[in-house]
């Protein structure tokens, strides 16, 4: 007898906490999405935190082809201007002026706003 239809492919994604990205874990075989869901976590995330799990039929995923990956993902490594890498020299300049650098750590710390009285 044929069991072929039992073996549907699902891709499993999970999220660790509300801030983390969705991460592709692996794929599994299951007869349907309900069963895929009940199997996913203990197959791939039994040693880690999980906040959310997605199962997606593999056939529903349009991934890049080999050609696309080679054609569309190649960038020249000259985009430092888009990153902080280009501005490291500022640290010294600010230092000379007895000022701190507005780096990631500093700016992120701004989310804590001092409370005012009254």
């Amino acid at each position: 007898m044929n069991e072929q239809d039992f073996y549907q492919e699902f891709e499993v994604f999970s999220r660790k906490n509300p801030r983390s990205g969705l991460m592709h874990q692996f794929s599994l075989l299951a007869p349907n999405e309900e069963m895929a869901m009940i199997l996913a976590q203990e197959n791939f995330m039994r040693r880690e935190e999980v906040m959310d799990v997605w199962v997606v039929p593999s056939s529903s995923i349009r991934h890049m082809t080999d050609e696309e990956r080679q054609a569309l993902t190649q960038r020249i490594d000259n985009k430092n201007y888009r990153t902080t890498k280009a501005y490291g020299y500022l640290r010294k300049k600010w230092q000379d002026k007895e000022q701190g650098m507005l780096d990631e750590q500093e700016i992120m710390s701004w989310k804590e706003v001092k409370k005012h009285r009254g």
């Binding site: 039992f6 599994l28 075989l29 299951a30 069963m35 009940i38 199997l39 976590q41 203990e42 197959n43 039994r46």
Partner: peptide, 12 residues
């Protein structure tokens, strides 16, 4: 009956 089900069952 199924490898994936086996792994999950063992956690239980």
């Amino acid at each position: 009956p199924h490898v994936e089900a086996d792994v999950a069952f063992s956690s239980i």
